[in-house]
Amino acid sequence: MLLADARLPSGGHAHSASLEPALLGGMAADAVPAWLVGRATTVSLVEAGTAVVTARLLGGSRDGAGGPPDGVRLADVVRAWAARTPAPALRDAARLLGRGYLRLARNLWPDAPAMRVLAAHDAPHGQLPRAVVLGAIAAATGLPAADTVRLTVYDDAQTAASALLKLEPLDPLAPARWVLEACAAAEPHVPRVASCTTPEDIPASGSPQTEGWAQAHALLSQRLFRA
């Protein structure tokens, strides 16, 4: 499942998972490990919950937890995610990533019903965010919900760690450890997030400083990463 990674050309090397905005916003480089942990326990869980509910909706749940109630549509999941993602710069970045992930996923699983649903939704409603596409990939591959959560958190942390090496000179082994620590910090939240079945269940854990940095960064002309 490492295929689902913003480092891929289809996602672009263009994303730093909010790290470049943080560093340009004044965060010290030695705060990165704590920032990664904070991310893994806040905004990454919003993404993870969105992916889990999407996977259930698209019929990929094989862990007996059941799908969302009848009448819940993909648009409801997207709306729940957007209401939990107040910063437009972060919504835009997530949709750009979603487009790249979707291209990759349709290539790899062209016949999966989940991908057909996404493609049908994408055309009239605009680009789907990364978390929804990750959820569809989970549905197409039968990934258990807990692993979907872990994948989403890992994807985010690893994207930031890879970007870090381009932004700050340091021993490349250090961020690898920080990613593991961030994933470990998310672990106590995994059962709760994996049990999400409805859009209302999706965590809403925000990160105001990150949101402010993201908006300021979106206006900069001198930047290495899109977001």
């Binding site: 909010s18 943080a22 965060m27 705060a31 704590a34 920032w35 942990v37 904070g38 991310r39 806040t42 409801d76 709306r79 729940a80 209401a83 939990r84 107040p86 859009p199 209302e200 965590p203 809403a204 854990s205 925000g206 990160s207 105001p208 400083q209 990150t210």
Partner: peptide
């Protein structure tokens, strides 16, 4: 129509988290 804003901020003065409130 549905949700407009859903947010849950969890902070603790003794444990400042960079990215949340710093």
């Amino acid at each position: 129509v549905g949700p407009i804003l859903v947010e849950e901020l969890s902070v603790a003065g003794e444990h400042p988290v960079p990215g949340v409130l710093g």
